[in-house]
């Protein structure tokens, strides 16, 4: 009996030791992983939580110097209607390249509706067309433009 009790006592000590060792290893691991992901301990500092969510929507829709960064479109009334309706199938680059008057933008929308699966724009159509003709109006080019934006360089031969 005495031997059995002694064995139980020793087993208990080993068990407690094991618990302590495992908890410490666990703690070190958790702290280590945390430090790898957040070496500056930013969570404990009084910062806005945005820094942890780089890819969230608000950030993608950021506007700098009057340009909607994600699409390159000019920030003006109707921007989000254009973003939401005109950049699903094709790139915003196609919109930005083009210069049309109201009539031709509407004709282009009709063509996309008839052949390219564009939906009915409802009340947004006026907003979108007005955004496009206001912010991307056609300029006069005539029969031939002068050369512009020439990058001059010394020709070495």
């Amino acid at each position: 009996m005495e031997k059995e009790e002694q064995f139980r006592y020793q087993a208990k000590i080993i068990y407690r030791l094991m618990v302590i060792v495992f908890s410490m290893v666990g703690l070190v691991t958790v702290t280590g992983i945390y430090l790898i992901t957040d070496p500056t301990l930013s969570v404990f500092k009084k910062t806005t939580p945005e820094s942890l969510y780089i890819l969230t929507e608000e950030d993608e829709e950021r506007i700098e110097n009057g340009i909607h960064l994600r699409t390159g479109l000019i920030e003006a009334e109707g921007l989000m209607e254009v973003v939401n309706n005109c950049t699903n199938c094709h790139s915003s680059k196609l919109v930005i390249q083009n210069r049309m008057n109201k009539e031709r933008w509407i004709a282009t929308i009709r063509w996309m509706q008839e052949t390219q699966n564009l939906w009915d724009l409802g009340g947004n159509e006026d907003i979108i067309v007005s955004y496009l003709v206001t912010n991307y109006p056609p300029g006069k080019k005539g029969r031939r433009e002068i050369l512009t934006n020439i990058e001059w360089y010394d020709l070495q031969e």
Partner: peptide
């Protein structure tokens, strides 16, 4: 890109 009035499409 040189046409006036501008033509629709890639410039």
């Amino acid at each position: 890109s040189e046409f006036d009035p501008p033509a629709k499409g890639n410039q």
